[in-house]
Amino acid sequence: MLDTFIQMFSYSFMLRAVIVGVLVALCSALLGVTLVLKRYSMIGDGLSHVGFGALCLALAMNVAPLAISVPVVVIAAFLLLRISENSKIKGDAAIALISSTALALGIIVTSMTTGINSDVNGYMFGSILAMSTTDVYVSIILSAFVLVLYVVFYNKIFAVTFDENFARATGTKTGMYNTLVSLLTAITIVIGMRIMGAMLISSLIIFPALTSMRVCRSFKSVVVTSAIVSIICFFIGLFISFAFSMPAGASVVAVNAITFGIFSILGIAKRKLS
């Protein structure tokens, strides 16, 4: 097993996948706690579908994938948030509308140009081969941006998530922080979906938060635990994918699902004992 482990790092594409994956796992876990608690879990799913559409477009236009998908997904994030705040259109229905439309557009563009080739398949279900060296640098910079902003605004994010009305009443610009969270989510999703795939990236946002909430009872411990759980699950998932030649994204999700089960049992045991 150790041999396989060392072997895994001898491939430069694996090393790139590990670097980007760990950063994405960390960012998505942090943001996931807020999104899950605010009942915005589906926004992650919606954005990843929009991201898929944008990547297909980039492929058809033959331009760098991140250059197109980052701005498109960021704009979609703003739109989705506006719609969620507007009580006249129900948020979940609007997300379903936008995400399926984007998916459809992506497939139409693809069928008119390249057809469903391995690149498009990679966008759907993820590919560890997808990362170029430039992508790695861009990902590192964007992840650092997400992490720094999250730490800087940690207390504000807590206040706005826990009680938006109270936060607004005491002078916090809650709209700004909601926008910030959706902006950071958009960036994280675009980076992460290359490895995890458009269909699977939202699990990286939802699973770690829910897993840590089975056991932890304070906000800080939930945030820290979900970050750790997320990174470990990604690592194990990637290792399994390498050792048994399984798709990376699916393996990571499977490991996350098992961990969720284990934490659920731990949580029940903890409550029984106390």
Binding site: L37, K38, R39, N155, K156, F158, A159, T161, F162, D163, E164, N165, F166, A167, A169, T170, G171, T172, M213, C216, R217, S218, F219, K220, S221, V222
Partner: peptide
Amino acid sequence: PQKTAVQKDFPASVREVVLSGCQS
């Protein structure tokens, strides 16, 4: 404020909640 649905399953310690008042 009146209680919100979010708070029902929100993981937060009493200290964290009280401290969040110090942001005005």
